[in-house]
Design a protein around this nucleic acid. Structure first.
Lengths: 152, 152
DNA sequence: AGGCTCAGGTCGATCGCATCCACGGAGAGT
DNA sequence: ACTCTCCGTGGATGCGATCGACCTGAGCCT
């Protein structure tokens, strides 16, 4: 993980469809060298996936909610997590410090579907209560921040 | 936005680096046809970007926080937003219903940097108070959900 | 019905890119 | 200095991206 790897990661965070030839020009190496470096970043777990970022409204997911979850005293955290994982509406799941053990980001098509999701969450074994906030609009999301230093 | 467009979007949400030839095989069209459709999805704003998803720890962003913002009575929401936009640590910004006008997701390298960010947020004109929750771990993030119906 | 027009495809050709392989050079250890 | 290893370069080759020409069916006007 040197400065060139970091540049490659930054370039691919900005545009995942850049060709190896283009990446090579940007970092000043040959295409095969870049190919190998990116391959190692992928297999080493630094690059997890390449995703198209889609306007949620365009695919019928116009409602975004952020939901805090309080576990009850009987809860097995792994089981609760597994139950969340089965709910495709939950796009992100953070395990939090504080009274609320989890913070979920969910996207659904309608308020009615959100209601059903909340009911399902409250019925889930181990869940004591939920607290839902509705996002009126997403100003931006997953903006890649410029990289300075490195690790590993 | 027909069923084929939806398949293309779903395929690219799963893997943004699929070739047009591969996409064409998957949806049963020719490569040029797919190329044109994807081009229209991009210029029509359905596909916003292609991004590599990176392990945050690997690039020195090991601390994730979710921060609620309460505006004061003098606040100009646009100005507040603009101030947030200048802070690269803020990866996502949602405008929320409720007492807290904004919910921010921020990533920084250390707790010390988080402290500095929170101080800066509290000093921002229009911000009355902040409430920060720290994510102990990210179970998953931006998982693409399977698409059923369409819009537009 | 006949024929125009247009959207959206296919096909074929060309050129650049991905990818494989053999080779080379710098740095560390002995 | 020798050699091993890592990491890179350059050349070759086959596939994919992309352009242009042409095809076809739907909708519509006359």
């Amino acid at each position: 993980m040197d400065a060139i790897d970091l540049s490659l990661v930054e370039l691919l965070r900005g545009n995942a469809r850049l060709s190896y030839a283009e990446l090579a020009r940007q970092v000043g190496l040959s295409a095969p060298a870049v190919h190998e470096r990116v391959g190692k970043l992928e297999s080493g777990g630094v690059i997890r996936a390449y995703r198209a970022e889609v306007e949620p409204e365009a695919i019928g997911l116009g409602v975004t909610a952020l939901i805090g979850i309080v576990e009850d005293s009987t809860a097995d955290t792994d089981d609760v997590l597994e139950a969340f994982r089965q709910m495709p509406e939950i796009e992100s799941c953070y395990f939090m410090a504080g009274v609320e053990s989890f913070l979920l980001k969910a996207r659904v098509g309608t308020i009615a579907e959100l209601e059903q999701l909340i009911v399902r969450l409250n019925r889930t074994a181990g869940v004591a209560s939920t607290r839902t906030g509705i996002a009126l609009s997403t100003k931006w999301e997953n903006r890649p921040q410029p990289l300075e230093s490195a690790a590993s």
